[in-house]
């Protein structure tokens, strides 16, 4: 078996063209998932009736579903309902016009949210109860306690774990070809369909995934220096 380095390079460039899509599919679900996840974590932390039970089930269910299934089910639900909903609201949007990347982002957000909410819930629980009492004792309102005392301490605790989630999301995004989104993997495979040199294509894409994840790790390590300081602050 001969290995065609020239073609690997070609596939590499072809895949690189779709890097923005892959990054988008990693970052946007992380951002959306963090916002929703923090909301869920707060609802569960404060044990808000009904909602906290509802979200407990949401988290339990989505933790157990493979991301492929979330993608496929989202696609089916969207393809079935977008036109109907658009009709009833007399919007002109059609499912066929909808950028498939939004479906992928929706599905990956669902996938990330349960894990992210658990990360934030853990971080919230690790804030010493006494500090919260102290905050109330100096006359802060509920919102002020949240904004001034809890959130500023939750973020540094959660950040290193968010990096892990981002890496899982980048890797999970390689499945989006199932809902006909072209990401770096699919981009390289399209190139390989011409001459059946799949091995070269796969290896080219692997290199990109590796580089992206290494870059994220490097950011984490850089942050770690800062986090160590603030963690010492947390648990001195």
């Amino acid at each position: 078996m001969d290995f065609d380095f020239a073609f690997m390079f070609e596939a590499f460039l072809a895949a690189l063209h779709y890097l923005p899509t892959t990054l988008l599919l990693g970052f946007l679900p992380l951002v959306f998932g963090s916002i929703i996840g923090l909301g869920i974590a707060l609802i569960r932390h404060y044990k808000i009736p009904i909602l906290s039970v509802l979200f407990k089930w949401f988290v339990t269910i989505f933790k157990a579903i493979p991301v492929v299934l979330i993608l496929l089910v989202s696609y089916l639900v969207f393809s079935d309902s977008v036109d109907k909903i658009a009709d009833s609201l007399s919007w002109s949007i059609r499912f066929s016009d909808l950028d498939r990347r939004w479906i992928a982002i929706f599905a990956l957000t669902l996938y990330a949210t349960s894990g992210l909410s658990e990360i934030f819930r853990g971080a919230l629980a690790s804030i010493p109860k006494g500090q919260i009492d102290a905050a109330y004792s100096i006359g802060l309102t509920n919102i002020q306690v949240l904004r001034r005392v809890m959130i500023p301490q939750v973020i540094p605790l959660a950040l290193p774990l968010l990096n892990n989630t981002l890496i899982s999301l980048i890797k999970a995004s390689s499945l989006v070809s199932m809902v006909s989104v072209v990401d770096i993997l699919n981009g390289a495979l399209i190139e390989a369909n011409v001459n059946y040199r799949y091995l070269e294509a796969y290896i080219a894409v692997s290199l990109i995934y590796w580089a992206v994840c290494a870059a994220i790790e490097a950011v984490t390590a850089g942050y770690g220096k800062y986090a160590n300081k603030s963690r010492r602050r947390q648990f001195a």
Binding site: P128, A134, S137, R233
Partner: peptide, 11 residues
Amino acid sequence: MVFQQYDLFHH
């Protein structure tokens, strides 16, 4: 209030 565990804001 002054607390047994001081409970200063760590951040």
